[in-house]
């Protein structure tokens, strides 16, 4: 399946990527993180920090499932306001 992945703020800078289209068989956010970490540095350490997950623009947890066409985003804890 194909998904769109977005990275924001410090995380986007660490991995030097803001978005990508990904062909993957990851069925959950945590499986996707495993796959991204397996790319080696800087991906591995970037995901060592506390990361928030959004699936289709809603905050999600690591166990939440991913389907074809989904928009998944990873970012550091938010600091607005």
């Amino acid at each position: 399946m194909t998904i769109r992945v977005f990275y924001f703020a410090a995380l986007a800078e660490q991995v030097d990527c803001r978005s990508e289209e990904l062909e993957t068989d990851a069925t959950s956010a945590s499986k996707l993180i495993e796959i991204l970490r397996a790319r080696g540095e800087p991906w591995r350490s970037a995901f060592d920090s506390r990361i928030q997950i959004a699936i289709n623009q809603h905050l999600a947890g690591p166990a939440d499932s991913i389907s074809d066409g989904d928009e998944v985003a990873f970012f550091p804890p938010v600091t607005g306001g």
Binding site: F8, A9, A10, P76, P77, V78, T79, G80, G81
Partner: peptide, 21 residues
Amino acid sequence: TRAPFWKKELLQDGSSRWVEA
């Protein structure tokens, strides 16, 4: 805690750093 905004401080010497939650 839930709206996706991130603040970055821009420093005098041209460098910058992200604000921690």
